[in-house]
Each structure stands twice: as structure tokens, then as C-alpha cells.
Nucleic acid binder design. Structure first.
Length: 579
DNA sequence: TCGCCTTTGAAGGAT
DNA sequence: ATCCTTCAAAGGCGA
């Protein structure tokens, strides 16, 4: 069943489209690289401003324009891929990054860190592994470390959903980011302390499989610090950072401490650079605080600061009652977009003069949509891993726990806001944050990305293989829409389910009312900001349950059909009648 | 000093 | 099953 087409994403019949997507994605990178942004910026500006106007037409032209540009990037793209394959190859060779061809990415193993906040010892150790994206990604030689090494699909990945690695089109992250629950088993205590590993869920101690341990030893300290980041391409910027890791940290004999790609990815984003060059003891002895943990006292500044709290906590042998009182703030795991934002923000900021996050975020949002499915899939995958890890680290944690912790994030007006408001707001909001001068979104943005994406990350995942948004989709430029109303969520109503979120009352408001430039955010995942409702013939949901694995051929196939359908059936835009 | 703004996605309560 | 709300990051800005 897996190999329906054997071509992975290519088989979906959207090859050309896929290519274009790639180009787009590349282009963006390129943009960042070659700050030939001048032109890009102009394009973007105009595109952003006029997008809505030129919805349909622009897309084509845009593509046409862009294509030439992007071409050159195909090379880089290939390179990135090469990086991956290279990394993979090494891992598979057992060489395990012996030769650091990519100095930029140090090999990282996470030392034994205990999570001070988890009174329940069962989880603690793994918390340490929750590191940030900026950190080098390290992948544990997948199979080796795993209990089920024989299994083609790492059992640990199985979030119920088997990971299917396409023979020919292996998701880049899949192999690299295998993280195993085993490895990061919350219950994995230092071996010297306890030979047993606690089952994250059951809490029942188990004896670590030898294979779980050994794989990490091979890592030579010398190699550390000069290992290519397997996901470097994923982190254009951060990837460049080199983190010198205290040898001691790597010598740590605990498999659970080894950082695999997924972890690193996860890790990378939430740890501040400070963490990168921490004194050895900080890593090894005090442990790495889970980035998601934020001391209540410390507002929630992730950078650097969050380190201390946890570290302190860790130091105190007994995280006693205080912990309870202080109840650490465990942050939500970052979603795909957030991960993307973290990575790209700096880039965008560099390209533009914009500093305001709101504006940057708008751009990022657009870029996000312009990403190829593959690229998005990477982030979805990372996000999935992060969630997975997070859940392992904090089994009892619920997103609800954080409710109300954030200073009144909601503005009251939302509920209060009346339809009338919408118009006003929307007008004002449009482009508000994208001053003409600063608009620097990538022109490429207009392409649709994943219609289904968020709703079905799976879709996104599947996406690589999945048919790119069809022409119609692609053609629809994303608009910098304005959120009609405060935080009204506008969603496409997909027959199946779109992302968890969904259309809302507001949609009507915007559509009908006043959005000066209403563009159809087709392909936007579950975007909140769009007005028009897109109805699709196909229930994505049926295709993808919450995905946990990289695009499986199955999904691909499904998508394929979906794709076909799409092509034949243009999207129908339906504006939800306002109430 | 604090919350808003803005983005997408996920989670979970409410309907 | 769907809808709705909140939060995650981030940093300038306004009150």
C-alpha cells in the first residue's frame, strides 16, 4: 500500500506544480540570501497591496516572474537535499557524523536534565531534551537506538500513526527526527542512578535496551561541535550558529539524553542562544530546562531567563511545595507556524526594515502560505514532534492550564464588537501593518499552500507528495487580509473539518462588508483571517487524521485523487452569509 | 509597565 | 461534530 506510485510526492501528478513550489520556497530562501530584496520588496509591496485586486491574474504573472528567479535556487535546494541525504547517509553508515563536513552543526546530546517541575519523577529526565530549534539538530541513529530497530517505522514515532517512509521519497525529517519516546522517555533516569527507564505512560520502570544506550557512545567528543545540522536547511540562519558543546555533555551515557534531530529542532527554538554556550555544568549538572517551562515569576521570557528558574529549581533537590505554588508555566508546544516564525523572523526582519512583530508576522504568514508543501511539512513534522515530546514531558499538562496566565490576551471588544465594527476595523487594518515601504513579503507568497494543511497537518505532511495546490489554488494569492474583527476567526469551511478552527460569524462580516481588499485566502490553512469561505469538494479529514507521520503514500494517493478533483472542480467560493 | 497588534496552528471547553 | 476561545513567539507601540 505504501508505494502506490512509488514516486512519493512526485507521483501525484503535480510534478510541475511541485517544482514550482520548490522554486517558490527556494526563492524565499534566496531572497534572504541574496538580499536582492530591493526588487523583491517592491514586488512584495505591490503584490501585497494589490494582491487582492489581482487575485487571479496576478498569480500567473507572479509565477511567471518568479520562476526565472527561482531557478537559480534549485541548486540550493538540491544542496539542502544533499545535506539531508548526506546526513542520512552518515547516520546510516554508522559513521554518525564522524566527519564534520558541516561545521555549522554540532552534534548534540542532551545531558541528563531533570525537570524540576515534574514532581512525578517519571517524567523528569526527558524534559531536558526539550530544547530549542536554534540548537543543532542531532539525530540519533534511528534504528540503532530504538527498541524496535527492526521496524521500518520507528515505533516511537508512532503516535498511533505509523510512519511510512517512502522508499524513494523519504521525508527528510522522518529519519532525522526520529525521536523515540523511548529515548526521551520521561522516565529515563541517569543510568548510573537507575538502570531502569520509566515508561512515560505507565510509569513502570523498564530496563533499557542495550541498543538504546550504545548508539550514543560512538559519538566522539571531538566530532561534537562540528557536525552538520541535518536540518540546516530548515534553519537558514540559526543553522549557521555553532554551538560548542561541552564534551561532558556528550559523554553522558544516557540514551535519553541523546538529541536527535527532532529534538534539536524542538529544542532549538525555545532555548535562547545563551543556552548554547552554557557552562558545562549548566548542561550536565543542572540540566537543561525545558524551554516550555517558564517561571511564573519571570513573566514568560523565554530567552535566557527561563533558564535560571528551572535551573534553580533543579538545584533544589526537592522541588517541593513551592513548585506547587509557583507552578511553573509550561508553555504550549509551538505549532508549525510558530516554529517557522522563529526561524524566519530574523530573516524577514533583516530583509525589511520592519521591526514590528505584527507586521513581520503578517509577512511571515504570507510566506508561510507560500512555502511549498514540503517545506511546510517539515514544520508540521517538527511541530508534531514537539507536541509529542511535550506530551511526554508533561503528560498531565493541558493547554488549558495556561489559560488566564497570559495577561488578558483577549480584548473584550471582541465579544462586544458588533458587525458594524467589522467594517471599520477591517478597513483600518488592511495593510495597516505593512507600510508600503516596509512591505517585504516575498512575492512568492501568493501561491496557495496548503489548503488543507493545518486542519490536517497530515495534509501538510502528505503534502510534499501531495499535489500542490492546484492552479486554482495557487492562483489565489493570499491576501494580507485584515482580520475583520479583532480575533475573529475566519475559516474555510471544509466539508470535512478544516482545522480545528473554523469559520465563524465574523467571516460574513468581512466578506460582505468592508474589507477593502478581500482576497481569497485559498490555501490558507485554517487561517483566521480570511473571509470568504472556501468550500471544497473533498473532505480532507477523511484523508488525514491528525497526522503523525510524514506523508505516506497512502495519503499521497488520497491527496492525489483529491488533487485531481480539485483541478476538475474549481473551488467554489462561498461567502458565508452573515448570520 | 503592561497589553495590543499580528500571524497560524493546536487544544479543549462549549454548544 | 462543530464552534469558539485561548495560547504559543516576538517586538514595536501606545496608554
Amino acid at each position: 500500500m505504501p508505494q502506490l506510485n512509488g514516486g512519493g510526492g512526485d507521483d501525484l501528478g503535480a510534478n510541475d506544480e511541485m517544482i514550482s513550489f520548490k522554486d517558490e520556497g527556494e526563492q524565499e530562501e534566496k531572497i534572504s540570501e541574496n538580499v536582492s530584496a530591493e526588487r523583491d520588496l517592491d514586488d512584495v509591496k505591490s503584490s501585497l497591496v494589490n494582491e487582492s485586486e489581482n487575485n487571479s491574474s496576478s498569480s500567473d504573472s507572479e509565477q511567471a516572474e518568479r520562476r526565472p528567479q527561482t531557478r537559480p535556487d534549485s541548486e540550493s535546494y538540491e544542496k539542502t537535499r544533499d545535506y539531508f541525504s548526506e546526513a542520512l547517509r552518515r547516520q546510516q553508515d554508522g559513521g554518525f557524523f564522524k566527519s564534520p563536513h558541516y561545521p555549522g552543526y554540532p552534534f548534540l546530546m542532551i545531558p541528563d536534565l531533570t525537570n524540576p517541575y515534574l514532581s512525578n519523577g517519571s517524567l523528569s529526565p526527558s524534559a531536558r531534551t526539550y530544547l530549542q530549534m536554534k540548537w543543532p539538530l542531532l539525530d540519533v541513529p534511528g534504528s540503532a537506538a530504538l527498541k524496535d530497530s527492526r521496524s521500518p517505522t520507528p515505533g516511537h514515532l508512532s503516535n498511533k500513526v505509523p510512519v511510512v517512509q517512502h522508499a524513494h521519497h523519504v521525508h527528510p525529517l522522518t529519519p532525522l527526527i526520529t525521536y523515540s519516546n523511548e529515548h526521551f522517555s520521561p522516565g529515563t533516569p541517569p543510568s548510573h542512578l537507575s538502570p531502569e527507564i520509566l515508561d512515560p505512560k505507565t510509569g513502570i520502570p523498564r530496563t533499557p535496551h542495550p541498543s538504546e544506550l550504545s548508539p550514543y557512545y560512538p559519538l566522539s567528543p571531538g566530532a561534537v561541535g562540528s557536525i552538520a545540522h541535518p536540518l540546516g536547511w530548515l534553519m537558514p540562519q540559526q543553522g549557521q550558529h555553532m554551538y560548542s558543546i561541552p564534551p561532558g555533555g556528550f559523554r553522558h551515557p544516557y540514551p535519553a539524553l541523546a538529541m536527535n534531530a527532532s529534538m534539536s529542532s524542538l529544542v532549538s527554538s525555545r532555548f535562547s542562544p545563551h543556552m548554547v554556550t552554557p557552562p558545562p555544568h549548566s548542561l550536565h549538572q543542572t540540566g537543561i530546562p525545558h524551554p516550555a517551562i517558564v517561571s511564573p515569576a519571570i513573566k514568560q521570557e523565554p530567552s535566557g531567563d527561563n533558564i535560571s528558574p528551572s535551573m534553580h529549581a533543579r538545584k533544589s533537590p526537592v522541588p517541593p511545595k513551592k513548585e506547587e505554588d509557583k507552578k511553573p508555566h509550561i508553555k504550549k508546544p509551538l505549532n508549525a507556524f510558530m516554529l517557522y516564525m522563529k526561524e524566519m523572523r530574523a530573516k524577514v526582519v533583516a530583509e525589511c526594515t520592519l521591526k514590528e512583530s505584527a507586521a513581520i508576522n503578517q509577512i511571515l504568514g504570507r510566506r508561510w502560505h507560500s512555502l511549498s508543501r514540503e517545506e511546510q511539512a517539515k514544520y508540521y513534522e517538527l511541530a508534531r514532534k514537539e507536541r509529542q515530546l511535550h506530551s511526554q514531558l508533561y503528560p498531565g499538562w493541558s493547554a488549558r492550564d495556561n489559560y488566564g496566565k497570559r495577561k488578558k490576551r483577549k480584548r473584550e471588544n471582541k465579544p462586544d464588537s458588533k458587525p458594524e465594527d467589522f467594517s471599520i476595523r477591517s478597513k483600518k487594518q488592511c495593510v495597516q501593518y505593512l507600510p508600503s515601504e516596509k512591505m517585504c513579503d516575498s512575492p512568492a507568497s501568493s501561491h496557495g499552500s496548503m489548503l488543507d494543511s493545518p486542519a490536517t497537518p497530515s495534509a501538510a505532511l502528505a503534502s510534499p507528495a501531495a499535489p500542490a495546490a492546484t492552479h486554482s489554488e495557487q492562483a489565489q494569492p493570499l491576501s494580507l487580509t485584515t482580520k475583520p474583527e479583532g480575533r475573529m476567526h475566519h475559516h474555510f469551511s471544509l466539508p470535512g473539518k478544516a482545522s480545528g478552527s473554523t469559520s465563524s460569524s465574523s467571516s460574513s462580516s468581512s466578506s460582505s462588508s468592508s474589507q477593502p481588499t478581500i482576497s481569497i485566502p485559498i490555501g490558507t490553512s485554517g487561517s483566521h483571517s480570511t473571509t470568504p469561505i472556501l468550500t471544497r469538494p473533498i473532505p480532507f479529514t477523511s484523508l488525514h487524521p491528525p497526522m503523525l507521520s510524514p506523508p505516506s503514500p497512502f495519503h499521497q494517493a488520497a491527496l492525489h485523487s483529491h488533487h485531481a478533483l480539485f483541478q476538475s472542480q474549481p473551488l467554489s467560493l462561498v461567502t458565508k452569509p452573515t448570520e
